[in-house]
């Protein structure tokens, strides 16, 4: 489990790491804050559920169903996490 808040850059890097691992995205594919999960990273609907689950496990944050459609980019996920920080 990784505590939040991290600095923006560190949080983005951590989110990228979790997404890469969860969706098995090869190292040759660059992932940035602007990367769109579906269009750019080719994460399908099933993979997206897996990514969200891994994010929740990793950061110990519950992502509400209503929020899911708004998490289009990697940066959106990081912003959501920053906004729902559980300060250790």
């Amino acid at each position: 489990m990784t505590p939040i808040p991290l600095s923006d850059d560190l949080l983005i890097a951590e989110v990228v790491r979790v997404i890469r691992r969860a969706a098995k995205i090869p190292a040759v594919v660059a992932i940035t804050a602007d990367s769109r999960l579906v269009e750019d990273l080719c994460i399908d609907s099933l993979d997206l559920v897996g990514v969200v689950l891994q994010i929740q496990d990793h950061f110990d944050v519950a992502i509400e169903e209503d929020a899911m459609p708004h998490l289009a980019r990697v940066g959106d996920v990081a912003a959501y996490l920053a906004g729902h920080a559980v300060v250790p």
Binding site: D47, V49, G50, L53, Q56, D57, A62
Partner: peptide, 16 residues
């Protein structure tokens, strides 16, 4: 893993 989660979610890859 499911038992450790508050929402009892499991991996979407479990069934497949």
């Amino acid at each position: 893993r499911m038992a450790s989660r508050k929402n009892l979610a499991v991996s979407p890859y479990l069934i497949p």
